[in-house]
Design a protein around this nucleic acid. Sequence first.
DNA 1: CAAAACAAACCGACCATCTGGTATGTTTAG
DNA 2: CTAAACATACCAGATGGTCGGTTTGTTTTG
Lengths: 186, 186
Amino acid sequence: MTEAHERKKQPEIVRRALLDCAAQISQEQGLPAVTLQAVADAAHVTKGGLLHHFPNKQALVQAVFHDLLEQLDAQIDALLEDDRDAYGRFTRAYIRAFANAESQGASNWNALPLSSLTDPEMKAMWSDWYASRLARHAETDAGPELGIARYAADGLWLAGLLEYSGVEATGQDALIEQLISMTRKT
Amino acid sequence: MTEAHERKKQPEIVRRALLDCAAQISQEQGLPAVTLQAVADAAHVTKGGLLHHFPNKQALVQAVFHDLLEQLDAQIDALLEDDRDAYGRFTRAYIRAFANAESQGASNWNALPLSSLTDPEMKAMWSDWYASRLARHAETDAGPELGIARYAADGLWLAGLLEYSGVEATGQDALIEQLISMTRKT
DNA sequence: CAAAACAAACCGACCATCTGGTATGTTTAG
DNA sequence: CTAAACATACCAGATGGTCGGTTTGTTTTG
Protein backbone atom coordinates (compact mmCIF):
# COMPACT_ATOMS: atom_id res chain seq x y z
CA MET A 1 0.00 0.00 0.00
CA THR A 2 1.58 3.25 1.07
CA GLU A 3 5.33 3.16 1.00
CA ALA A 4 6.29 2.49 4.56
CA HIS A 5 9.84 2.02 3.44
CA GLU A 6 12.61 4.28 4.58
CA ARG A 7 10.32 5.72 7.16
CA LYS A 8 11.81 6.09 10.57
CA LYS A 9 9.78 3.76 12.83
CA GLN A 10 6.17 4.65 12.81
CA PRO A 11 4.40 1.58 14.03
CA GLU A 12 0.89 2.83 13.47
CA ILE A 13 1.60 3.56 9.84
CA VAL A 14 3.09 0.14 9.34
CA ARG A 15 0.14 -1.45 11.06
CA ARG A 16 -2.25 0.38 8.79
CA ALA A 17 -0.26 -0.63 5.75
CA LEU A 18 -0.39 -4.25 6.84
CA LEU A 19 -4.15 -4.13 7.27
CA ASP A 20 -4.68 -2.41 3.94
CA CYS A 21 -2.38 -4.76 2.07
CA ALA A 22 -4.00 -7.81 3.58
CA ALA A 23 -7.43 -6.48 2.64
CA GLN A 24 -6.33 -5.73 -0.87
CA ILE A 25 -4.77 -9.12 -1.40
CA SER A 26 -7.81 -10.94 -0.09
CA GLN A 27 -9.95 -8.84 -2.37
CA GLU A 28 -7.90 -9.38 -5.48
CA GLN A 29 -6.69 -12.93 -5.06
CA GLY A 30 -8.91 -14.43 -2.42
CA LEU A 31 -8.29 -15.26 1.18
CA PRO A 32 -5.97 -18.23 0.56
CA ALA A 33 -3.56 -15.81 -1.08
CA VAL A 34 -3.32 -13.85 2.13
CA THR A 35 -0.10 -15.39 3.38
CA LEU A 36 2.16 -13.84 5.95
CA GLN A 37 4.90 -13.53 3.39
CA ALA A 38 2.69 -11.91 0.78
CA VAL A 39 1.27 -9.36 3.19
CA ALA A 40 4.67 -8.57 4.62
CA ASP A 41 6.15 -8.11 1.17
CA ALA A 42 3.32 -5.87 0.04
CA ALA A 43 3.77 -3.68 3.09
CA HIS A 44 7.55 -3.59 2.71
CA VAL A 45 8.13 -5.33 5.99
CA THR A 46 9.61 -8.68 6.82
CA LYS A 47 7.56 -11.54 8.12
CA GLY A 48 9.17 -11.01 11.49
CA GLY A 49 8.05 -7.42 11.48
CA LEU A 50 4.52 -8.41 10.66
CA LEU A 51 4.43 -10.98 13.42
CA HIS A 52 5.44 -8.28 15.83
CA HIS A 53 2.22 -6.37 15.12
CA PHE A 54 0.00 -9.42 14.92
CA PRO A 55 0.94 -12.47 16.99
CA ASN A 56 -0.37 -14.88 14.35
CA LYS A 57 -2.23 -15.06 11.10
CA GLN A 58 -5.64 -15.39 12.66
CA ALA A 59 -5.11 -12.18 14.57
CA LEU A 60 -4.19 -10.41 11.37
CA VAL A 61 -7.19 -11.59 9.43
CA GLN A 62 -9.54 -10.82 12.27
CA ALA A 63 -8.07 -7.34 12.57
CA VAL A 64 -8.73 -6.79 8.89
CA PHE A 65 -12.29 -7.93 9.33
CA HIS A 66 -12.75 -5.68 12.32
CA ASP A 67 -11.40 -2.82 10.27
CA LEU A 68 -13.84 -3.55 7.47
CA LEU A 69 -16.70 -3.55 9.92
CA GLU A 70 -15.70 -0.12 11.12
CA GLN A 71 -15.63 1.19 7.59
CA LEU A 72 -19.10 -0.18 7.00
CA ASP A 73 -20.19 1.43 10.21
CA ALA A 74 -18.90 4.82 9.17
CA GLN A 75 -20.56 4.58 5.80
CA ILE A 76 -23.89 3.66 7.29
CA ASP A 77 -23.72 6.43 9.83
CA ALA A 78 -23.05 8.91 7.06
CA LEU A 79 -26.03 7.63 5.12
CA LEU A 80 -28.21 7.81 8.20
CA GLU A 81 -27.60 11.54 8.41
CA ASP A 82 -28.99 12.17 4.96
CA ASP A 83 -32.29 10.50 5.63
CA ARG A 84 -35.32 12.49 6.64
CA ASP A 85 -37.84 9.76 7.25
CA ALA A 86 -37.64 7.81 10.45
CA TYR A 87 -39.26 4.54 9.42
CA GLY A 88 -36.79 2.16 7.81
CA ARG A 89 -33.95 4.60 8.03
CA PHE A 90 -31.32 2.06 9.00
CA THR A 91 -32.51 -0.43 6.43
CA ARG A 92 -32.17 2.12 3.65
CA ALA A 93 -28.67 3.00 4.78
CA TYR A 94 -27.83 -0.69 4.95
CA ILE A 95 -29.06 -1.26 1.41
CA ARG A 96 -27.23 1.72 0.02
CA ALA A 97 -24.03 0.86 1.84
CA PHE A 98 -23.91 -2.58 0.29
CA ALA A 99 -24.87 -1.23 -3.09
CA ASN A 100 -21.98 1.21 -2.88
CA ALA A 101 -19.60 -1.43 -1.67
CA GLU A 102 -20.38 -3.38 -4.78
CA SER A 103 -20.26 -0.73 -7.44
CA GLN A 104 -17.89 1.89 -6.12
CA GLY A 105 -14.14 1.71 -6.19
CA ALA A 106 -13.50 1.31 -2.49
CA SER A 107 -14.81 -2.22 -2.53
CA ASN A 108 -12.54 -3.86 -0.03
CA TRP A 109 -15.72 -5.56 0.89
CA ASN A 110 -15.23 -8.74 -1.05
CA ALA A 111 -13.66 -12.11 -0.53
CA LEU A 112 -12.88 -11.75 3.14
CA PRO A 113 -16.40 -11.63 4.55
CA LEU A 114 -17.35 -14.66 2.54
CA SER A 115 -14.43 -16.92 3.17
CA SER A 116 -14.33 -15.97 6.79
CA LEU A 117 -17.77 -17.29 7.52
CA THR A 118 -15.97 -20.49 8.28
CA ASP A 119 -14.21 -18.97 11.23
CA PRO A 120 -16.48 -19.01 14.29
CA GLU A 121 -14.95 -15.91 15.79
CA MET A 122 -15.59 -13.86 12.69
CA LYS A 123 -19.07 -15.23 12.41
CA ALA A 124 -19.63 -13.98 15.92
CA MET A 125 -18.16 -10.60 15.09
CA TRP A 126 -20.60 -10.10 12.28
CA SER A 127 -23.51 -11.53 14.22
CA ASP A 128 -22.79 -9.21 17.11
CA TRP A 129 -22.45 -6.19 14.89
CA TYR A 130 -25.66 -6.93 13.08
CA ALA A 131 -27.59 -7.65 16.27
CA SER A 132 -26.37 -4.50 17.96
CA ARG A 133 -27.27 -2.31 14.98
CA LEU A 134 -30.66 -3.93 14.81
CA ALA A 135 -31.22 -3.31 18.50
CA ARG A 136 -30.15 0.30 18.20
CA HIS A 137 -32.64 0.96 15.44
CA ALA A 138 -35.35 -1.29 16.75
CA GLU A 139 -37.90 1.51 16.85
CA THR A 140 -37.52 2.46 13.23
CA ASP A 141 -36.46 -0.80 11.58
CA ALA A 142 -38.28 -3.67 13.20
CA GLY A 143 -40.87 -4.43 10.51
CA PRO A 144 -40.67 -7.77 8.72
CA GLU A 145 -40.78 -6.15 5.28
CA LEU A 146 -37.65 -4.29 6.27
CA GLY A 147 -35.98 -7.51 7.22
CA ILE A 148 -36.80 -8.93 3.84
CA ALA A 149 -35.46 -5.83 2.15
CA ARG A 150 -32.20 -6.25 4.04
CA TYR A 151 -31.98 -9.91 3.15
CA ALA A 152 -32.55 -9.00 -0.47
CA ALA A 153 -29.73 -6.48 -0.24
CA ASP A 154 -27.48 -9.23 1.03
CA GLY A 155 -28.53 -11.47 -1.80
CA LEU A 156 -27.97 -8.72 -4.31
CA TRP A 157 -24.51 -8.10 -2.95
CA LEU A 158 -23.76 -11.79 -3.12
CA ALA A 159 -24.97 -11.92 -6.70
CA GLY A 160 -22.62 -9.06 -7.47
CA LEU A 161 -19.68 -11.18 -6.45
CA LEU A 162 -20.81 -13.93 -8.77
CA GLU A 163 -20.95 -12.07 -12.03
CA TYR A 164 -17.69 -12.87 -13.64
CA SER A 165 -16.35 -9.43 -14.46
CA GLY A 166 -19.02 -9.07 -17.11
CA VAL A 167 -20.77 -5.73 -16.71
CA GLU A 168 -24.10 -7.37 -16.09
CA ALA A 169 -25.29 -4.47 -13.95
CA THR A 170 -28.39 -4.17 -16.09
CA GLY A 171 -31.24 -2.76 -14.11
CA GLN A 172 -29.28 -3.10 -10.93
CA ASP A 173 -29.85 0.48 -9.92
CA ALA A 174 -33.53 0.07 -10.56
CA LEU A 175 -33.58 -2.99 -8.35
CA ILE A 176 -31.96 -1.08 -5.54
CA GLU A 177 -34.49 1.70 -5.85
CA GLN A 178 -37.24 -0.85 -5.69
CA LEU A 179 -35.73 -2.23 -2.53
CA ILE A 180 -35.61 1.26 -1.10
CA SER A 181 -39.25 1.77 -1.94
CA MET A 182 -40.03 -1.37 0.03
CA THR A 183 -38.76 0.40 3.12
CA ARG A 184 -41.31 3.20 2.92
CA LYS A 185 -44.31 3.12 5.18
CA THR A 186 -47.09 1.18 3.53
CA MET B 1 -19.03 -41.63 4.82
CA THR B 2 -20.18 -45.04 3.66
CA GLU B 3 -17.69 -47.74 4.48
CA ALA B 4 -15.88 -48.35 1.26
CA HIS B 5 -13.47 -50.48 3.14
CA GLU B 6 -13.14 -54.19 2.55
CA ARG B 7 -15.18 -53.76 -0.56
CA LYS B 8 -13.73 -55.48 -3.56
CA LYS B 9 -13.07 -52.73 -6.12
CA GLN B 10 -16.12 -50.77 -6.95
CA PRO B 11 -14.85 -47.55 -8.43
CA GLU B 12 -18.19 -45.82 -8.61
CA ILE B 13 -18.85 -46.41 -4.97
CA VAL B 14 -15.43 -45.13 -4.03
CA ARG B 15 -15.94 -42.11 -6.20
CA ARG B 16 -19.22 -41.34 -4.51
CA ALA B 17 -17.62 -41.78 -1.11
CA LEU B 18 -14.89 -39.35 -2.06
CA LEU B 19 -17.40 -36.76 -3.19
CA ASP B 20 -19.52 -37.19 -0.08
CA CYS B 21 -16.58 -37.05 2.27
CA ALA B 22 -15.16 -33.97 0.61
CA ALA B 23 -18.53 -32.28 0.87
CA GLN B 24 -18.90 -33.24 4.49
CA ILE B 25 -15.46 -32.00 5.44
CA SER B 26 -15.94 -28.71 3.70
CA GLN B 27 -19.25 -28.35 5.46
CA GLU B 28 -17.95 -29.17 8.92
CA GLN B 29 -14.49 -27.65 8.87
CA GLY B 30 -14.48 -25.32 5.93
CA LEU B 31 -12.90 -25.55 2.53
CA PRO B 32 -9.28 -25.17 3.68
CA ALA B 33 -9.70 -28.39 5.63
CA VAL B 34 -10.51 -30.22 2.43
CA THR B 35 -7.07 -31.64 1.80
CA LEU B 36 -6.33 -34.61 -0.38
CA GLN B 37 -5.12 -36.53 2.64
CA ALA B 38 -8.16 -35.73 4.75
CA VAL B 39 -10.59 -36.70 2.03
CA ALA B 40 -8.71 -39.86 1.21
CA ASP B 41 -8.60 -40.88 4.87
CA ALA B 42 -12.28 -40.18 5.38
CA ALA B 43 -13.14 -42.33 2.38
CA HIS B 44 -10.77 -45.10 3.48
CA VAL B 45 -8.59 -44.71 0.46
CA THR B 46 -5.04 -43.56 0.05
CA LYS B 47 -4.10 -40.30 -1.55
CA GLY B 48 -2.90 -42.20 -4.57
CA GLY B 49 -6.28 -43.84 -4.87
CA LEU B 50 -8.01 -40.52 -4.74
CA LEU B 51 -5.76 -39.04 -7.39
CA HIS B 52 -6.70 -41.90 -9.62
CA HIS B 53 -10.31 -40.75 -9.62
CA PHE B 54 -9.59 -37.05 -9.74
CA PRO B 55 -6.44 -35.87 -11.49
CA ASN B 56 -5.92 -32.99 -9.05
CA LYS B 57 -7.51 -31.17 -6.20
CA GLN B 58 -9.28 -28.62 -8.31
CA ALA B 59 -11.01 -31.36 -10.24
CA LEU B 60 -12.18 -32.90 -6.99
CA VAL B 61 -13.59 -29.72 -5.56
CA GLN B 62 -15.27 -28.82 -8.80
CA ALA B 63 -16.79 -32.26 -8.99
CA VAL B 64 -18.19 -31.79 -5.51
CA PHE B 65 -19.63 -28.47 -6.52
CA HIS B 66 -21.11 -29.95 -9.64
CA ASP B 67 -22.61 -32.69 -7.55
CA LEU B 68 -24.16 -30.18 -5.21
CA LEU B 69 -25.66 -28.33 -8.13
CA GLU B 70 -27.27 -31.52 -9.33
CA GLN B 71 -28.76 -32.16 -5.93
CA LEU B 72 -30.18 -28.66 -5.89
CA ASP B 73 -31.53 -29.26 -9.34
CA ALA B 74 -33.29 -32.42 -8.32
CA GLN B 75 -34.78 -30.79 -5.28
CA ILE B 76 -36.09 -27.87 -7.28
CA ASP B 77 -37.54 -30.12 -9.92
CA ALA B 78 -39.36 -32.07 -7.27
CA LEU B 79 -40.75 -28.88 -5.79
CA LEU B 80 -41.83 -27.70 -9.22
CA GLU B 81 -44.07 -30.71 -9.54
CA ASP B 82 -46.05 -29.87 -6.45
CA ASP B 83 -46.92 -26.38 -7.58
CA ARG B 84 -50.23 -25.65 -9.25
CA ASP B 85 -49.83 -22.00 -10.10
CA ALA B 86 -47.73 -21.04 -13.07
CA TYR B 87 -46.61 -17.56 -12.14
CA GLY B 88 -43.51 -17.56 -9.95
CA ARG B 89 -43.32 -21.32 -9.83
CA PHE B 90 -39.59 -21.55 -10.15
CA THR B 91 -39.02 -18.77 -7.66
CA ARG B 92 -41.10 -20.56 -5.05
CA ALA B 93 -39.20 -23.77 -5.61
CA TYR B 94 -35.95 -21.87 -5.38
CA ILE B 95 -36.95 -20.30 -2.08
CA ARG B 96 -38.13 -23.57 -0.60
CA ALA B 97 -35.06 -25.43 -1.77
CA PHE B 98 -32.76 -23.03 0.00
CA ALA B 99 -34.95 -23.01 3.07
CA ASN B 100 -34.75 -26.78 3.21
CA ALA B 101 -31.03 -26.80 2.63
CA GLU B 102 -30.69 -24.63 5.67
CA SER B 103 -32.98 -26.37 8.11
CA GLN B 104 -32.97 -29.98 7.00
CA GLY B 105 -30.35 -32.52 7.73
CA ALA B 106 -28.96 -32.99 4.27
CA SER B 107 -27.36 -29.60 4.31
CA ASN B 108 -24.22 -30.27 2.36
CA TRP B 109 -25.01 -26.90 1.00
CA ASN B 110 -22.70 -24.90 3.19
CA ALA B 111 -19.12 -23.78 3.17
CA LEU B 112 -18.24 -24.88 -0.31
CA PRO B 113 -20.45 -22.54 -2.31
CA LEU B 114 -19.20 -19.60 -0.32
CA SER B 115 -15.51 -20.22 -0.27
CA SER B 116 -15.50 -21.25 -3.86
CA LEU B 117 -16.72 -17.92 -5.10
CA THR B 118 -13.07 -17.11 -5.32
CA ASP B 119 -12.53 -19.67 -8.00
CA PRO B 120 -13.51 -18.26 -11.40
CA GLU B 121 -14.51 -21.61 -12.79
CA MET B 122 -16.94 -22.27 -10.00
CA LYS B 123 -18.30 -18.81 -10.21
CA ALA B 124 -18.99 -19.54 -13.84
CA MET B 125 -20.60 -22.87 -13.00
CA TRP B 126 -23.06 -21.20 -10.69
CA SER B 127 -23.65 -18.28 -13.00
CA ASP B 128 -24.37 -20.60 -15.87
CA TRP B 129 -26.70 -22.75 -13.83
CA TYR B 130 -28.60 -19.78 -12.56
CA ALA B 131 -28.83 -18.15 -15.97
CA SER B 132 -30.01 -21.32 -17.64
CA ARG B 133 -32.68 -21.94 -15.04
CA LEU B 134 -33.82 -18.38 -15.34
CA ALA B 135 -34.01 -18.68 -19.10
CA ARG B 136 -35.94 -21.92 -18.86
CA HIS B 137 -38.56 -20.37 -16.63
CA ALA B 138 -38.53 -16.97 -18.25
CA GLU B 139 -42.23 -17.06 -18.99
CA THR B 140 -43.29 -17.69 -15.44
CA ASP B 141 -40.51 -16.09 -13.39
CA ALA B 142 -39.40 -12.91 -15.08
CA GLY B 143 -41.02 -10.33 -12.82
CA PRO B 144 -38.78 -8.01 -10.82
CA GLU B 145 -40.60 -8.79 -7.56
CA LEU B 146 -39.70 -12.41 -8.13
CA GLY B 147 -36.08 -11.47 -8.55
CA ILE B 148 -36.19 -9.64 -5.26
CA ALA B 149 -37.80 -12.60 -3.60
CA ARG B 150 -35.00 -14.81 -4.85
CA TYR B 151 -32.37 -12.38 -3.68
CA ALA B 152 -34.02 -12.33 -0.29
CA ALA B 153 -33.92 -16.11 -0.21
CA ASP B 154 -30.19 -15.94 -0.88
CA GLY B 155 -29.76 -13.44 1.89
CA LEU B 156 -31.80 -15.54 4.25
CA TRP B 157 -29.70 -18.57 3.46
CA LEU B 158 -26.56 -16.57 4.01
CA ALA B 159 -27.87 -15.35 7.33
CA GLY B 160 -28.53 -18.94 8.27
CA LEU B 161 -24.85 -19.69 7.92
CA LEU B 162 -24.01 -16.85 10.23
CA GLU B 163 -26.02 -17.83 13.25
CA TYR B 164 -23.55 -19.59 15.42
CA SER B 165 -25.34 -22.86 16.14
CA GLY B 166 -27.79 -20.98 18.35
CA VAL B 167 -31.34 -21.99 17.42
CA GLU B 168 -32.24 -18.47 16.39
CA ALA B 169 -34.80 -19.72 13.89
CA THR B 170 -37.44 -17.55 15.47
CA GLY B 171 -40.04 -16.60 12.92
CA GLN B 172 -37.91 -17.98 10.16
CA ASP B 173 -40.69 -20.11 8.78
CA ALA B 174 -42.97 -17.10 8.80
CA LEU B 175 -40.42 -15.14 6.84
CA ILE B 176 -40.23 -17.83 4.24
CA GLU B 177 -43.98 -17.89 3.89
CA GLN B 178 -43.96 -14.17 3.45
CA LEU B 179 -41.40 -14.54 0.70
CA ILE B 180 -43.60 -17.13 -0.93
CA SER B 181 -46.55 -14.79 -0.78
CA MET B 182 -44.46 -12.23 -2.62
CA THR B 183 -44.38 -14.60 -5.56
CA ARG B 184 -48.12 -14.68 -5.99
CA LYS B 185 -49.75 -12.65 -8.70
CA THR B 186 -50.48 -9.14 -7.47
C1' DC C 1 22.00 17.97 29.77
C1' DA C 2 24.22 13.73 28.71
C1' DA C 3 24.53 9.10 29.17
C1' DA C 4 23.00 4.98 30.63
C1' DA C 5 18.97 1.72 30.90
C1' DC C 6 15.09 0.03 29.12
C1' DA C 7 11.52 -1.09 25.82
C1' DA C 8 9.50 -1.17 21.51
C1' DA C 9 10.04 -1.93 16.46
C1' DC C 10 11.90 -4.64 13.18
C1' DC C 11 15.09 -7.98 10.71
C1' DG C 12 16.92 -12.48 8.97
C1' DA C 13 17.79 -17.05 9.47
C1' DC C 14 15.91 -21.22 10.65
C1' DC C 15 12.53 -25.10 11.28
C1' DA C 16 8.79 -28.52 11.59
C1' DT C 17 4.96 -29.50 9.18
C1' DC C 18 1.92 -30.00 5.65
C1' DT C 19 0.48 -29.77 0.88
C1' DG C 20 -0.28 -31.15 -3.76
C1' DG C 21 1.67 -33.99 -6.90
C1' DT C 22 4.63 -37.81 -9.20
C1' DA C 23 6.54 -42.20 -10.06
C1' DT C 24 6.22 -46.81 -9.41
C1' DG C 25 4.74 -50.86 -7.67
C1' DT C 26 0.86 -54.34 -6.60
C1' DT C 27 -3.74 -56.29 -6.78
C1' DT C 28 -8.08 -57.28 -8.85
C1' DA C 29 -11.61 -57.63 -12.58
C1' DG C 30 -13.09 -58.83 -17.20
C1' DC D 1 -3.22 -61.07 -19.90
C1' DT D 2 -4.22 -56.40 -19.99
C1' DA D 3 -6.05 -52.56 -18.11
C1' DA D 4 -8.15 -50.41 -14.55
C1' DA D 5 -8.19 -49.74 -9.50
C1' DC D 6 -5.76 -49.09 -6.01
C1' DA D 7 -1.34 -48.73 -2.51
C1' DT D 8 3.46 -47.11 -1.20
C1' DA D 9 7.15 -44.25 -1.26
C1' DC D 10 8.83 -40.11 -2.04
C1' DC D 11 9.64 -35.08 -3.04
C1' DA D 12 9.94 -30.11 -3.87
C1' DG D 13 7.85 -26.15 -2.40
C1' DA D 14 5.37 -23.32 0.57
C1' DT D 15 3.51 -21.95 5.03
C1' DG D 16 3.01 -20.55 9.74
C1' DG D 17 5.69 -19.71 13.38
C1' DT D 18 10.02 -19.30 16.65
C1' DC D 19 14.25 -17.24 18.07
C1' DG D 20 18.27 -14.44 18.68
C1' DG D 21 19.80 -10.32 17.54
C1' DT D 22 19.95 -5.27 15.89
C1' DT D 23 18.21 -0.80 15.37
C1' DT D 24 15.48 2.99 16.92
C1' DG D 25 13.00 5.67 20.36
C1' DT D 26 11.92 6.90 25.17
C1' DT D 27 12.66 7.28 29.96
C1' DT D 28 15.46 7.54 33.87
C1' DT D 29 19.30 9.01 36.35
C1' DG D 30 23.52 11.34 37.82
